[in-house]
Design a protein around this nucleic acid. Sequence first.
DNA 1: CATGACGTACGATAGGTGTCGTACGTTGGA
DNA 2: TCCAACGTACGACACCTATCGTACGTCATG
Lengths: 129, 129
Amino acid sequence: MARTPQPTDAELRLLKVLWERGGSTARAVLEALPARRKVGYTTVLKILQVMEEKGLVSVDRGARSHVYSPRAGRGPTMRRLVADFVQRTFDGATDEMLVHLVDGRALDDAALNELEARVAALRGREEDR
Amino acid sequence: MARTPQPTDAELRLLKVLWERGGSTARAVLEALPARRKVGYTTVLKILQVMEEKGLVSVDRGARSHVYSPRAGRGPTMRRLVADFVQRTFDGATDEMLVHLVDGRALDDAALNELEARVAALRGREEDR
DNA sequence: CATGACGTACGATAGGTGTCGTACGTTGGA
DNA sequence: TCCAACGTACGACACCTATCGTACGTCATG
């Protein structure tokens, strides 16, 4: 069976709003969109309808204004997007991706600490084997 | 002035061949393509022609078979692709991207060492300020 | 010198995406 | 009650991408 497809860019923008706000009407999503990204109301509605067809959101048609909710969580969705990108762009070479990402980029201390902790944790797990 | 556009997926596949082999004819690129990715000869030629229009490759029309060469290096191109992806997907939050990337993924010791070294280098630079 | 292999140019196509416009139904308040 | 505001459904559109088919030129060699 084919998995539910990846969200497109426009779809991802709306999903971010839904993850943030929880179930929302089309109008609520429209109004929560970042100012730079304003778009027509019917555009938002259309994208939500397409996402429902694709299985990316569920919809409650109880009230007059339908309420849309994300089907998949933010974490798993993002992970799939990242995995696909690494596959497409680096033929799956995660380490190379990491190098490009860390290099020449502004990461604050907190981010570096977080990263080191995760690296340490991973290393520990490898040594267990 | 608008910068030269990002390569699409199909274009990137051909660019990888050009980076690997250096300047090549359409036929050479076709034959160097991974077996799983075989495609018609005119498809390859067309993509190369489109890339020339976009400024992604240069072409030497001296010989009967034109020779195509990448205009930008692999490193800068990949960096731009990664930066765009992080922007689109994580609204520029590189640290979050890193977390998703490192988490639950098979990185061997060498990759972890490399990563730690880069983190250390970055940390050093920050402390200089 | 004729012909087949090779090469290029160019148009066509199918599928996907992002954006709306329009038609039409519903509903709450003047 | 009735109409303006709100909501949905649906089709249209322009733009990209990826892929190929066809027309046509050239060149070497039998």
